[in-house]
Amino acid sequence: MNLKPIWLVEDSANDIELTVAALEDSHLANRLIVMRDGSEALDRLRKLGHPGGDSFPAVILLDIKMPKVSGIEVLRSIKADPRLKNLPVVMLTSSREGPDVTACYELGANAYVVKPVEFGDFLEALKTLGKFWAVLNERPEPNNGQEGIHAALAGEPT
């Protein structure tokens, strides 16, 4: 079974570790690909579906506050690209303060989640997210059948 990976774009090592623990706890079979900042994410997004690039993810979990390129800039790039705009993007943030919620929805974010302070709640939240976006949610195939080509390429021994 060709399960789509889950992308996590997050600069905080602690958060990455806790997220990994939470997803492990939810027993999802999808592979988790972690990127440490926005520029790395943009690089890999550009190569997405091309030879040597990643396959299309089931969902991108995108932290807002990151050094260099912020989550909002990454979101803007994804939603402005006709090839990528159908990718589900879930914004993760530590607070509900600030103009972020509105800005993100205006840019086309698919969800906006405030990380619960209590770990129990955090665990629950990530379980739900993973289950929903990686398992339940259906979305249109990427344009130009590129995912298919990429899948074929990926299937070949390299």
Binding site: S12, N14, D15, L18, A21, K65, T93, S94, S95, R96, E97, K115, P116, V117, E118, F119, F122
Partner: peptide
């Protein structure tokens, strides 16, 4: 909100 909550969350998470 942001900067205090994050370490707090980590504290709670790891504990």
């Amino acid at each position: 909100s942001h900067d205090l909550r994050a370490p707090l969350r980590h504290l709670d998470g790891f504990l």
